[in-house]
Structure formats: C-alpha cells, structure tokens
C-alpha cells in the first residue's frame, strides 16, 4: 500500500476527496489563456468598433459612437460586404459540388490501399502550406503560365479570350480576374468540405441504400432522396469552413484578383496604411455576426454531429 505521508500521496488523497480541486487544476490554465488572450482580444476588437476616427487629427477618439458602423453602409464599403458574401457563397457551392464525388467514393468504395490513398490524398493538400498553394496558382494562371500554354497548344486560345471578355468574371488575364480569385479559393478550401461530407457519408449504413433499391428506387432516386439528405449535415459543416475562411481571407484576393477589395483586405488596409482601427474593427465584426447566424442555423440542421 502506498505511503500515506509523502507529499504526492497527500495531494492524491485530496484529489480523491475533493475531485473539484483536480477539475479546477485542469481547467484553469487553458481557461485563463483562452479567456484573457483570446476573449480579451475579441472584446478589445469589439470595443474598438464603437470608437471613431477624428477626421481632422486622424487619431482615434475613445468615445462610444455608432458612427463607424454607419460608415459600413456607405456605398463603397457596402459593396465590399456584398462582394465578399457573394464570393463566399459561390465558393461554398462550388466546393460542395466538387467535394461530393470525392467524399462519396472515399466513403463508399475505397477499400484497403485505396482508402489510405484517398485519406492522405485529402490530408496532404489540407495541411500543406497555404501560401505555397496560393503561389502555385499564381504560376498556373500567369500569362506565360501552364494554363495559357495548354489552351495555345490545343489551338483553343479563342475560348479563353472569349471567356475573359465577359464582364465581371473576366479581365485582362485569369490572374487578375474574379474567376482567378474564385478558382484559388475553391482549391484552397476544398479539403475542408471533403472531410465532413465524407464523415457524414461514412455513417450511412450500406443496408439503407440496399433498402432504397429494394423498395424500387433507381440509383438516381436513391441519391436524391436518401444519400443527399443524409450528407446534408456534412455539407453544412463543411460550408461553415469554406464560408468563414473565404470571408476572412485577405491574401488570396490580393495576390490573384482584381483591385476591388474584399472584407479581409479592407480590414487589413484600414488598420494598416489607413490607420483607421475603428473602421477595421467594424468590418471585422461583420464576419463574426454572419458566422453567428450561420452557426445557429447549422446547429439546428444538426451539422455539428458531423464535425
């Protein structure tokens, strides 16, 4: 039997008699860190958004005002919000469409070695460097890059030119167009969509699909009425990532895209070169707000079980 007098032994006894002590010891350090560093910072941000900038001195006036939020509604700023939300939605929908077959194949058919191939095939792009991924698209979309070369070699350059002539989505070249920005977003966030969809599909028992076929459904009907509804929580879970990440990104549209800004860039520029921290803060509150609504809706749809 263990020695009853040594310090570790006495502390151990105290843990047993009063488990709350142990719980507090476990939970206090992470809670202090996240509470002070993270929540504290979020509150600092929120506080900043209620200050304003003095137009004459350019200094922050530390008085409560809603003026900064009103500025968000100015046409040029409001455009930024709308543009960002449209882009985030488009990226989310495209990711879901591309992700589904990969996730479905990986969940339902990949076995043994192929399972590992699919697993790593999704994990490695997910975890490999974000900047390198963006950079690789700069290489692909550049005028002298591989994509143009591909179209030229096949004598199809006219297709590309016709596409670039379309207003809004087109531009001088793909690397300075909205299409370019969109492609890179889809590429970079795609793994975040695949994984939750795959997780949701893996929980569908094969017998359920057999039952659907047994009851006379064609494979198309089974897909529409059985598989898609069951994959939906996974798609919603994935969309939380693709939507949120697109909304907050400022690097991709800066490197591949037009000069029109998105929320991330606005935040970055207002706090940096413009020195207007209150407006940057107010811009940053928009994604928090949108994500708050999104998460509430997603929670109701049961998406968190698929995370």
């Amino acid at each position: 039997m263990s020695d009853t007098t040594s310090a570790p032994s006495r502390i151990s006894d105290a843990f047993w008699r009063q488990p709350t002590i142990l719980l507090l010891l476990l939970v206090t350090p992470p809670l202090l860190w996240l509470g002070i560093v993270y929540l504290g910072s979020l509150f600092a941000l929120l506080a900043q958004s209620f200050f304003s900038i003095d137009e004459f001195t350019g200094l922050v006036r530390y008085e409560f005002t809603l003026k900064t939020y009103a500025e968000l509604l100015r046409a040029s700023n409001f455009d930024i919000l709308i543009r960002t939300i449209v882009m985030a939605s488009a990226v989310t929908i495209a990711s879901a469409i591309i992700a589904f077959p990969i996730a479905y194949y990986a969940a339902r058919y990949a076995r043994g070695r192929w399972k590992a191939v699919f697993y790593l095939g999704i994990m490695l792009p997910l975890w490999s460097s974000y900047l390198v991924k963006v950079y690789s698209w700069k290489l692909i979309l550049a005028k002298e890059g591989i994509l143009n070369w591909f179209f030229e070699t096949l004598y199809l350059s006219w297709i590309l030119e016709a596409y670039l002539a379309i207003p809004v989505v087109g531009g001088n070249s793909l690397s300075v167009s909205w299409t370019g920005t969109f492609l890179v977003f889809v590429y970079v966030w795609l793994p975040f969509m695949i994984l939750p969809v795959q997780a949701a599909l893996e929980r569908v028992p094969p017998s359920m699909l057999e039952a659907s076929g047994d009851l006379g459904a064609s494979s198309g009907q089974t897909l529409r009425h059985v598989i898609l509804p069951l994959a939906l929580p996974g798609i919603i879970a994935g969309s939380i990532f693709t939507f949120s990440l697109t909304m907050g990104d400022y690097i991709i549209p800066q490197i591949v895209g037009t000069s029109a800004r998105m929320i991330g860039q606005a935040v970055y520029q207002f706090q940096g070169t413009a020195g207007n921290i209150p407006l940057a803060a107010a811009f940053a509150v928009v994604p928090i707000f949108v994500m708050g609504i999104y998460l509430t809706l997603a929670k109701r749809a049961g998406a968190f079980d698929a995370l």
């Binding site: 939970v27 992470p30 809670l31 996240l34 509470g35 560093v37 993270y38 929540l39 504290g40 910072s41 979020l42 600092a44 941000l45 506080a47 900043q48 939380i240 949120s244 990440l245 909304m247 907050g248 990104d249 400022y250 991330g264 935040v267 970055y268 706090q271 921290i277 940057a280 803060a281 940053a284 994604p287 928090i288 994500m291 998460l295």
Partner: peptide, 27 residues
Amino acid sequence: TISLLVILPIALPGIITGISLRSAFNI
C-alpha cells in the same frame, strides 16, 4: 462552453483573431 471556446479561434476567420490580438496589444 469550454469546447466551443477552444474551437472558436479556428472557426472564426484568421483575420479576426489577428486584428483582435493587434487591438489588444495596442490597448
């Protein structure tokens, strides 16, 4: 609440975490 708090820094866009920390360092 604790499990939510842990996930929040990656559930919210990185720019939010970034500018929040910057505001806090500023203040």
